[in-house]
Design a protein around this nucleic acid. Structure first.
Lengths: 186, 186
DNA sequence: TAGGTGATGTCAGTGTCTGACATCGCTTAA
DNA sequence: TTAAGCGATGTCAGACACTGACATCACCTA
């Protein structure tokens, strides 16, 4: 028999999302999360840098998806199109977990602190996109503008996707946002 | 003689920026800030919701500048142009306090927590811009995309302005970012 | 079989932030 | 003129987030 139950990190994530949903982020202490996961408070902080991070551990993979997709785009693809393609890949990943995304987003939008952390994660994605674009030969200015714009459109699309009914498609929301931008920027 | 020295809030802001610059945000306690301002820790929290907020109290006025400028733009101005004009007004405000902005930004960029708060403030500005655009007749989608895009460009422009030498002009950086976008979105 | 490794536990802090109540110059109304 | 109330501040106690130092002990490896 193993000394510890496996997947401590995952148990903490599950316990946290459950408790946050049940009684809210503020009203949940780390001791309670740890207890539900059968661990101690100190162990929580060995897996997550702070209380918020327990909700954002899964957002790291998206960075890889985005940069890979940018790198994989044909060399002659214009920057904004490469960004659009990358966001499409990310959209496919998220589309699969719509109900989880909804549940998680409900907790996040109910709390200012969590919103802050989400914005940081998106800014990190923007930075990653910009770096990937530069290594494809885009200028610093082009890369920054294309990446920031892409993430801005993603934010708008993500919000309308989650606000819409269950049949909505994130990729479609994204395409619609890009189309709107191209009209506005004409 | 008045019972208290005047401008407690301003004294706290000054003391905080000084201490953050001297020894860093993390290494400064609220008790120290309060003491330098001749007040107590409890009073600090009556003026600012949390430790970070002492650096962001001055960013609220920008919201008014932006929404006023959008409202003041001629009715036939396209959304993205109205946003550009509004950001120009904000740029003029910031251009006057370049040295203060630099000092403050040095503290902010040195600390992840503070970066988070700054992103939230920018998101609030984006929300305000979108609301102002909608009340001018823009659709929800147009307003969201134009506002988010405008703030994204502002972020890029602000970064390059602060990175450049003392002769740089924020409005020019902004125009350059918009020009880059219009090229990319062609 | 001895010793090292690594995830976890225990404990004692520091600092942020909050609620409850006290203080006391100043303002307002009788 | 005075009593009552207001409002910015102080005092105090405490919950909770987060950290450093050290202990534990199943498991692996030489």
């Amino acid at each position: 028999m193993a000394r510890w139950e496996p997947n401590a990190r995952g148990r903490l994530e599950d316990a946290a999302l459950d408790l946050f949903t049940e009684r809210g982020y503020d009203k949940t202490t780390i001791a309670e999360i740890a207890q539900r996961a059968g661990l101690t408070e100190r162990t929580f902080f060995r897996h997550f840098a702070d209380k918020r991070e327990v909700l954002f551990g899964a957002s790291n993979p998206l960075l890889g998806v985005l940069t890979d997709a940018v790198a994989a785009a044909p060399t002659d693809t214009p920057p904004l199109d490469a960004v659009a393609a990358a966001l499409d890949s990310a959209a496919a990943v998220l589309q699969e977990r719509r109900s989880y995304a909804r549940r998680r987003q409900a907790v996040i939008t109910a709390n200012e602190e969590l919103l802050e952390r989400e914005l940081v994660k998106l800014a990190v994605l923007a930075e990653g996109l910009a770096t990937a674009l530069r290594s494809r030969g885009a200028s610093a200015a082009e890369a920054a503008v294309a990446a920031e714009t892409g993430i801005a459109l993603f934010r708008a699309a993500y919000a309308s996707w989650l606000a819409a009914d269950d049949t909505a498609d994130l990729a479609e929301c994204l395409h619609s946002a890009f189309a709107t931008l191209r009209t506005l920027a004409r």
